[in-house]
Design a protein around this nucleic acid. Structure first.
Lengths: 111, 111
DNA sequence: AGCTTATATGAGTCAATTCTAATATGATCG
DNA sequence: CGATCATATTAGAATTGACTCATATAAGCT
């Protein structure tokens, strides 16, 4: 499943937002998403599985709980895809700074 | 339609990639996507409409042709959403450069 | 004007996705 | 141990989304 397909669902985006604020148990996230979207525990669990399968999150077992952590990999892919559009909104000087920030992943012109 | 829902489709992503390389007519893009994905002109036109409706592209009329241009707005939204995850992969110093690059859109701590 | 090219739209079909309901697994606690 | 809590899984129903086919609109050509 392509990273963008995963991000195409609002519940999954919300789950990732929650994890971005710090580790969360399945239960905490379920409680929140349940009130916000009105879906069942089962549905949330299925979304969490999709996030795990696509590498967006990992879960560590803590007793009866699963603690979820967001993972950078697929998010970077998305960010990388966006690179080709940065020129359309980033002023030139700032673009240079971004270039530096990104560690000049790719060389665009000869030295 | 949320920006990420729009990007969730591979044909639409491809169309945006093509526009990112420069303005394109509907016909040019249709020809390419048709060979790559094997879908009809109608399907491509419907995808282009979704891109227009969501503000990802605008079309200018040139005789019988429509020339499409990619628009920054929604792409920036996506980039902004990604900000909250940057800390998970950007080393601290580079994060600072990104901060500069983004013009310090938001203040995170008191002066 | 009539034919062709370029693109868009609408209706209906089909497949993929998401949801609920029911159930399973495993930890915890009395 | 039996009950309960936390989470996952499976099966099937409901929904959504993308596609094709047919048709519409408008420009360009002869």
């Amino acid at each position: 499943m392509h990273a963008f397909d995963v991000l195409g669902d609002p519940v999954r985006r919300r789950l990732l937002e929650l994890m971005a604020e710090g580790e969360r148990s399945s239960g905490e996230m379920t409680a929140i998403v349940l009130t916000e979207f009105g879906i069942t525990q089962s549905a949330v669990s299925q979304h969490l599985r999709i996030l795990r399968d696509a590498g967006f999150a990992t879960a560590r077992i803590d007793g009866a709980r699963r603690i979820y952590t967001v993972e950078a990999g697929p998010m970077r892919e998305v960010d990388l895809w966006l690179d080709r559009f940065r020129g359309f909104w980033t002023p030139k000087l700032e673009a240079l700074a971004t270039e530096v920030a990104r560690g000049k992943r790719q060389r665009r012109d000869k030295p």
